[in-house]
Each structure stands twice: as structure tokens, then as C-alpha cells.
């Protein structure tokens, strides 16, 4: 298992040396989607809260970064932290509202809030330039290094994705993460044990919003363009599909799921312009036939093949 990890790391580092620009860009997109889906997985998989509004954080941080640059001429070194901070504060506010409910109420409120932002992006053209979107953006130049080439941006994204996934893994593996999983499985019991369930969920919501905002920055740096669709239900649903298809509540699942969604979107929509239809069918198929997602499904299969006992939570917790 450990050696497999090293091999993956090596391949990822060496990839731009042998892969063409198209593939390097494709993997960069997968990285961005992986951060986005993993941040959503903190809510869906570990808090047991299904949000259908996660595009809010990607979209708002991307719009903010673009707007600060275009309208106020603020450079990346300052616009990035502002965008992250403002988006995170917004997550704090949205989380406070949405967590007044739980279950499907939570899902409906997150969806309604993000649809309001989506409508706002279309209508408030003074700020968002409406349906035309905001263009004319640049990529940052950390330490004077240009990120304009596919491979330079790839390495930049690789570093961010490694840090992001690492930080989220730490979060999940911490005492707080253990309490979080407890609130997912037995919320009432957890409050009887002295845990403040709503605050645990709220902190997780804000943390997920922060990493969603990070993926939004990468998104705007990659595309150098932003359109209201980045805030759409489709975008939230793609991330959720990635989480569920890969396997919610696992660290690797959403990464694999995000990769599948990006690949599907790139390849299939190159041939047929029917992404929404395909997205719909994949959703239906996953829910009906593979509700646990790929990673737990394959893991179970593997356990059966090797004849081992199903790994207990002791193994995954320690």
C-alpha cells in the first residue's frame, strides 16, 4: 500500500515529462475538481450533511478574485487571501442558516442559497458582467515564476492539491474528525456525551467552504474566465456526483470520482453536446446500482477475492 502511494506520487511528478499538453491540462482540471469534491465530501461523507450548494464557494471565490483584479486592479498576492477570507465568512453565514435544519431541509436550503447566488451572477451585470462572464484575467506569478505553461500550472496545482488533501486528511484523522464522524452516526448520543453537535457541523461547513474557495481560485487561474455556470446547480451536482460515485466518507473516493466526472465531461461532450443528459443518467445509474460508490464497492470486492475479513473501523481510525 505504501509503495503504491510512492509510485502514484512519482508518476504525478514526472507526468509533464512524458504526457502531452492536452493531458497535462486535463490532469490539472482533475486536481481542481478533486479539491472541490473532497471539500464537499467533508460535509457529505463525514458530517452526513448532503449539500447541493457547494458551487457557491467555488464560484464566489473565483468571481471575487476576478472582480478584485479587473475592477480594482488588485494583484493576486492580495486578491487571493481576500477572496478566500470573504468566501469563508460567507460559508460561516450560509452554514449558520442551513444548519438550523438537518437532513433534507439542509439540502434544500443549501440548494436555494446557491441558486440565489447563481441568479445574482446572471442579473448583477455591473459586477459580474452577466451572461458574458468576466474575462481578461491572468494567472499569478508566485516568486516570479510564470504559470502560463501547462506544466508550470500543473506543478502549482499539484502542490496545492497535495496540501489541500493532506490538510483535509489531518482534519478527518484528528479528535475533531472523530467527533465529526460521531455526530454523523449518532447526533443525539454525541450531544449527551457533551459534544456541541451544531458547532462541530458548523466548523466543518466553514472548513469545507474554505477548501471550496481554494478550488475556486485554482479554477479561475486555470480558465482565466468565469461565467455564472460556475455557480450553477449543475456544478454543485457534478461535485456531488464525484463524491458519491467515488465513495463518500473515504479520502480517495472523491478524488477518483472527480477524475471520472472530468474525464466523462471532456471526452463525451467532445462527441455529443449532451453533458446534462449524461450527467443525469450517470446520477440515476449510480444511485440505483452503486449507491456506496466505486471505492467501497471495489474494496469489498477485493476483500472477497483475497478472502480477508472486511476491514473494521479500527483500521481506518488509527
Amino acid at each position: 500500500m505504501r509503495s503504491a502511494r510512492w509510485i502514484v506520487a512519482l508518476v504525478l511528478v514526472a507526468l509533464p515529462q512524458f504526457a502531452g499538453e492536452f493531458y497535462v491540462n486535463l490532469i490539472s482540471q482533475i486536481f481542481i475538481a478533486a479539491i472541490f469534491a473532497s471539500s464537499l465530501n467533508l460535509l457529505v461523507g463525514y458530517a452526513g450533511l448532503t449539500s447541493l450548494g457547494h458551487a457557491s464557494y467555488l464560484g464566489v471565490s473565483a468571481y471575487l478574485s476576478a472582480w478584485l483584479y479587473l475592477k480594482l486592479g488588485i494583484g493576486h498576492w492580495l486578491s487571493a487571501p481576500i477572496a478566500l477570507a470573504v468566501t469563508t465568512v460567507m460559508a460561516g453565514f450560509f452554514g449558520w442558516i442551513a444548519l438550523r435544519a438537518s437532513g433534507l431541509g439542509f439540502l434544500m436550503i443549501t440548494l436555494a442559497l446557491s441558486q440565489v447566488l447563481w441568479g445574482l451572477a446572471y442579473r448583477w451585470s455591473a459586477v459580474t458582467n452577466g451572461d458574458n462572464g468576466l474575462s481578461g484575467l491572468t494567472r499569478p506569478q508566485p516568486f516570479g515564476l510564470s504559470l502560463d505553461s501547462a506544466s508550470a500550472f500543473y506543478y502549482f496545482t499539484l502542490i496545492v492539491v497535495a496540501v489541500a488533501i493532506g490538510m483535509m486528511a489531518k482534519f478527518i484523522g484528528s479528535p475533531f474528525g472523530a467527533a465529526l464522524k460521531g455526530t454523523r452516526d449518532q447526533p443525539r448520543r454525541m450531544s449527551a456525551l457533551g459534544h456541541d453537535v451544531r458547532r462541530v457541523r458548523w466548523i466543518t461547513f466553514v472548513y469545507a467552504g474554505f477548501w471550496g474557495a481554494v478550488s475556486g481560485l485554482l479554477y479561475i487561474y486555470y480558465h482565466k474566465y468565469i461565467h455564472p455556470t460556475s455557480l450553477s446547480l449543475t456544478n454543485s451536482a457534478e461535485a456531488l456526483l464525484g463524491v458519491i460515485a467515488g465513495g463518500s466518507g473515504t479520502l480517495v473516493g472523491p478524488i477518483i470520482g472527480a477524475a471520472i466526472v472530468v474525464l466523462l465531461k471532456n471526452y463525451v461532450s467532445a462527441y455529443v453536446e449532451r453533458w446534462n443528459m449524461l450527467l443525469g443518467f450517470v446520477f440515476v445509474a449510480i444511485v440505483l446500482f452503486m449507491p456506496d460508490g466505486l471505492v467501497p464497492g471495489v474494496r469489498r470486492l477485493w476483500a472477497r477475492v483475497t478472502g480477508r475479513r472486511k476491514p473494521t473501523d479500527a483500521a481506518s481510525n488509527s
Binding site: K170, P175, F176, G182, D185, Q186, H195, Y207, D313
Partner: peptide, 30 residues
């Protein structure tokens, strides 16, 4: 109402965390 998928030890740890400031530690591994 126990945490059925977790170990006995982990169940007790969740209980101890309920009365300990450690429960807010989101960085150091459990």
C-alpha cells in the same frame, strides 16, 4: 445507542472527548 461500526475503545474515546478540550483539536492525529 452505541457507535456500532467503531471499536469498544473508540466508543469510550468519543465519550472522553465529550468532556475534554481535546475535542476541538483538528490537526494532531487522534
Amino acid at each position: 445507542t452505541l457507535f456500532a461500526r467503531d471499536t469498544l475503545l473508540h466508543n469510550i474515546v468519543l465519550s472522553l472527548l465529550g468532556r475534554s478540550r481535546t475535542r476541538w483539536d483538528a490537526f494532531r492525529p487522534l
